[in-house]
Amino acid sequence: MSLAPPAAHGGPDALGAPAHDFSTNANALGPCPMALLAIARADASRYPDPASTRLKVALADFHGVAPERLLLLASASEGIQRFSAWAARTAGACVWLPPHHYGDLSRAAQAWGLARTPEAGRARLLWACEPSSPLGQAEAGLVERLAGLRVEQALVLDQAYAPLRLSGAPSLEGAALDRVWRLVSPNKALGLTGVRGAYAIAPLAARQAVAELEALAPSWPLGAHAEAMLMTWAAPDTQRWLADSLDTLRDWKARQIALCESLGWTVLPSEANYFVARLPAPRDTDALPALRRERGVKLRDAASFGLPGHVRLGVRSPEDQAALRAAWPRGRGGDNSPR
Rank of each mutant, 00 (worst) to 15 (best):
N273S: 15
Q153K: 04
V57N: 10
M1F: 12
A147K: 10
W127I: 08
R46W: 02
P236I: 05
G223S: 07
D247V: 15
V95L: 09
L72V: 15
R330W: 12
S262D: 13
A42F: 09
L126K: 02
A258M: 05
G30M: 00
W265G: 08
R69I: 02
L216M: 04
L71I: 05
G264S: 05
V95R: 04
L55C: 07
T285Y: 15
V143E: 14
R69D: 04
S262F: 00
D43Y: 05
Q153S: 06
C260R: 08
K56S: 10
A160F: 03
A60P: 03
C32H: 03
P218A: 14
I201H: 11
G30D: 08
A215Q: 12
A175M: 03
A8F: 09
C94G: 03
A42I: 02
L177A: 08
S304Q: 08
L72F: 14
L263P: 00
I201C: 09
E130T: 06
A40F: 04
E319W: 03
G148C: 06
L222C: 04
S84C: 14
P98T: 01
I39E: 14
V267M: 03
V65G: 11
L29A: 15
G309D: 07
A209I: 04
G16M: 01
L55E: 08
R82K: 06
A26N: 11
P31D: 08
A128Y: 00
G64D: 10
W252H: 14
L324P: 05
C94A: 14
M229G: 01
